[in-house]
Amino acid sequence: MPRSSSHSEAIALVETRGVVALACALEAMEKATGVELLAIDRVGGGVAFAAVTGSTAAIRNAIEIAEEAARPHTERVGVRMYVRPTTPGAQLLSAGHLPIRSVASQRR
């Protein structure tokens, strides 16, 4: 799948039980590492999800920061990093074709 030059090297998925935990994680990640938020949504059952993109180093740091920031607010934090995404799901995320509400489209 061809990628435009605007795509970053890595993406991360962050999932928490509760919106407050996810908000804390996202704020800490964006302030500390400069990652870009791709999408955010409530999955169901109190679970919230976000996808972020950035350089591989920024995403690695962001994952650690997200877990640390969210942990005091929830019993559940899940993170997953994809470097140079190759799986179909990761390609969808890196291309911006998310099957959830895109943050970029809400900011316009």
Rank of each mutant, 00 (worst) to 15 (best):
V19H: 07
S8N: 08
R101Q: 14
A12T: 06
V103P: 00
E64Y: 06
R42H: 12
R108I: 07
S5L: 14
L38F: 01
A62P: 03
G18V: 06
M1T: 11
L93Y: 06
L26Y: 05
G78V: 15
R80V: 12
G44F: 10
I40V: 13
A32F: 00
H73A: 08
N61E: 13
S6C: 09
R107F: 01
A70S: 09
T86A: 15
S6G: 03
M1E: 10
V20E: 02
P85A: 03
T16N: 04
R108K: 10
A39P: 03
A10N: 05
R101W: 04
V52Y: 00
I40P: 00
L26N: 04
A95H: 14
R71D: 03
A12C: 12
I11C: 08
A66M: 06
E27S: 12
R108T: 08
L22G: 01
S8K: 14
Y82V: 08
V20C: 02
A95M: 13
S8M: 12
E27W: 02
L22A: 01
I63N: 08
A69Y: 01
V83C: 07
P85T: 05
L22S: 04
G44T: 11
Y82C: 14
R76M: 14
V19L: 14
Q91G: 05
G34W: 00
G45V: 04
K31L: 13
A104C: 02
G34P: 03
V19I: 12
G45W: 01
M81P: 05
L38R: 04
H7K: 11
L26A: 05
V19A: 11
P72N: 11
I59W: 04
S94C: 08
I63M: 12
G45S: 08
H73K: 09
G78M: 15
L92M: 14
A32L: 09
L92I: 06
P72G: 11
P85W: 05
G89S: 12
Y82H: 15
E67L: 00
T53I: 00
S94F: 03
A25T: 06
P88I: 08
H73Q: 07
L92K: 13
A70H: 09
G96L: 01
S55T: 15
L38I: 12
A90P: 05
E36G: 01
G89T: 13
A90H: 03
R108E: 09
